[in-house]
Design a protein around this nucleic acid. Sequence first.
DNA 1: GATCGCTACATTTAATGAAATATAACGAAG
DNA 2: CTTCGTTATATTTCATTAAATGTAGCGATC
Lengths: 101, 101
Amino acid sequence: MGPGKADLLEAIDRVGSISAGAREMGMSYKRAWDLVDTMNRCFKQPLVATATGGSHGGGAHVTEFGHDVLRRYRAMECKANDCVSAELHELISLLSPFGED
Amino acid sequence: MGPGKADLLEAIDRVGSISAGAREMGMSYKRAWDLVDTMNRCFKQPLVATATGGSHGGGAHVTEFGHDVLRRYRAMECKANDCVSAELHELISLLSPFGED
DNA sequence: GATCGCTACATTTAATGAAATATAACGAAG
DNA sequence: CTTCGTTATATTTCATTAAATGTAGCGATC
């Protein structure tokens, strides 16, 4: 679980399908599907439930469990960020302004 | 910068060369050298200084700047860890006991 | 000659992208 | 009422590409 998967989860929750979520995030459908598959297999219960077929071809939605994980993750991310914000910026100030080059 | 690079930095500091540090960490010399190279290029100043040739063929040591970065990184890691420890364990308890499978 | 830093090349592995297939609700004929 | 085509998606397969890794050798110094 990281910021990328969390963003994808939110996108899927917003638009109602993996493919539309992928488009919104500018990634390939396969990449999005792989991320969803990884999340669903990593946790005890699926975070995303999917349906194939139907008038709109199918769709996906974030489960109650998925919302719970997402909420916990975002809370943790935020808390950790606040907690070391000062130290982090000090460390970043030691980085080269040119990146790796 | 992550736990792996920090560990490598400490190993190099302990044993005095990239190759011995790599052996100690169970990685190839090339991998260790690449990590050191990345660190040296990412920061404003090198974290590791090297010498080729000499009585023992050369060696490497962590610079004063490198020690500073390492100390800051470890402090931050520890603080962030403590800060979200409870939440992190709650989240981990939601993971499948079988990993991705 | 020994040991190490460093580099270039080959190889193996992982990520990516594109394309083919499967699915099921829906509506329009018939 | 039944069949069929349409539709937008999920899912899988396969080829391609990029990245990581391993191998082998060179130059340096004591």
